[in-house]
Design a protein around this nucleic acid. Structure first.
Length: 170
DNA sequence: GCCAACGTTGGC
DNA sequence: GCCAACGTTGGC
């Protein structure tokens, strides 16, 4: 998921702990939010349009899609008169802070890594603000972002998230 | 600030 | 349904 850090950064999410991911007004991104994203999915938090472009950390979906409340609010910048509670056009999710990388995994690193061929953000004209990431690519980004906190224990890898060791299985 | 890429709008 | 015009995104 992309965000312009001037608007909302990983540090903002670290401070807030949770936030509503609202205001998505692109049908392709809407469909992904509504149809594909599930509770507890992990998110790569990407800083776009910034002096340091790249993946800044990890978040988690703590509530799956529900109608975008801002679309009903005439005072909101995201108001859409064609959306109504009876027939909502746009959807939001809630996300929770998980981890901030010790340093950003820059777009340049992503583009140069042979293991990350095919990742959405590498593609020219990539404008989709919410896009799927393969498990392989996700884990590779974690390796690049948190090298000291990734350890192999048996056949399972673990990542350090918010002072707590969570196991990533499968 | 520039501009390529892309999505949306609206006239026909 | 076509497509030109326009607006937005996002890397550089």
């Amino acid at each position: 998921m992309k965000s312009e850090p001037k608007v909302y950064s990983i540090d903002d999410l670290l401070r807030d702990r949770n936030t509503c991911w609202e205001g998505v007004r692109n049908y392709q991104a809407r469909n992904i939010i509504r149809d594909q994203i599930k509770k507890n999915d992990l998110i790569l938090f990407y800083h776009s349009n910034s002096s340091i472009i790249g993946v800044a950390g990890v978040a988690r979906v703590c509530r799956s899609a529900y109608p975008d409340q801002t679309s009903f609010d005439p005072k909101s910048d995201y108001f859409d008169p064609k959306s109504s509670p009876d027939n909502p056009r746009w959807f939001q999710i809630d996300i929770q802070f998980m981890n901030k990388f010790s340093s950003i995994v820059t777009l340049e690193m992503v583009k140069q890594d042979p293991d990350l061929i095919g990742m959405g953000v590498r593609k020219k004209g990539n404008r989709l603000s919410v896009q799927p990431v393969t498990k392989t690519h996700f884990e590779r980004i974690l390796q690049l972002g948190t090298p000291k906190s990734v350890a192999k224990i048996g056949s399972q890898s673990t990542i350090k998230i918010s002072q707590t060791w969570h196991r990533v299985t499968g």
